[in-house]
Amino acid sequence: MRTFIERTGERTLGAIEELGYAFSLCIESLYWLLAGPFLQQPVRLSAVVAEMMKIGVLAVPVVLLLAFANGAMMAIQGLATLREFGAESQVVAGIAYSVTREFGVLIAAIVVAGRSGSAIAARIGSMQMSQEVDALRVMGVEPVRHLVAPILLAMLIMMPVLTMFANAAAIIGGGIYTSMTLSMPLAVFIEQCFDVLDWSDLAQGLYKALVFGTLIALIACANGFSVSGGAEGLGRFTTRSVVLSIAAIVVADMIFTYFLNR
């Protein structure tokens, strides 16, 4: 019988090993992105563009919709709360800050984690199962260069873009509700947003976008390469990829927010 402590120890070691693996994927990808062109083994632009399509462009409608709804909900809650203090006009600042610093990027990241986190893990996992990854390797094509590096780069480009889209949609969502309730024109709402916002507020969201994008890419790829045990294993690692990336995003966000807003 294995004791609880033994199992916990094993799990911990496994987690550390996995972290190390994800980290090595990150370093190797950066290596190929930077050094590949000089070694005649470049990361293909066409692959990056294809990933940008899948990760970014196709996610735009969902991100817009969720962000818009989220902005409207913030306005509803904000107005209801602030009304009690007679400070309804403060809702603009509340929405502007929390969207750009927090919720725009969070919505974008959660959508991408759900859509691409699973898709990437499933794609790499099924390649792993059918020995396509081995085939790449024996052809002299490094799987990290061919598969991971384009995903990481596409994620680093598209996450900030999606975050900006989410910011815009959430502010417009909040603005529309506020303008209806407070008889304040939408244009004025948006103008006031620009007034209260500083570059550093936007930057805060964009930094996070880069970090969250990296986390999603690495967790999805690491889980994909770890797939074993047939179709059931594929399903398990795909689910795991989504759950872990969302957990990682929330934890990273908490750490970020703590240090950036003290």
Binding site: R123, S126, M127, S130, Q131, E132, D134, A135, R137, V138, M139, G140
Partner: peptide, 17 residues
């Protein structure tokens, strides 16, 4: 070395995409 090798795996391992 690998550029000089050709391999055909037991299940083919063709790229499905």
């Amino acid at each position: 070395l690998r550029r000089r090798m050709g391999v055909s795996f037991q299940n083919g391992a063709l790229f499905n995409s």
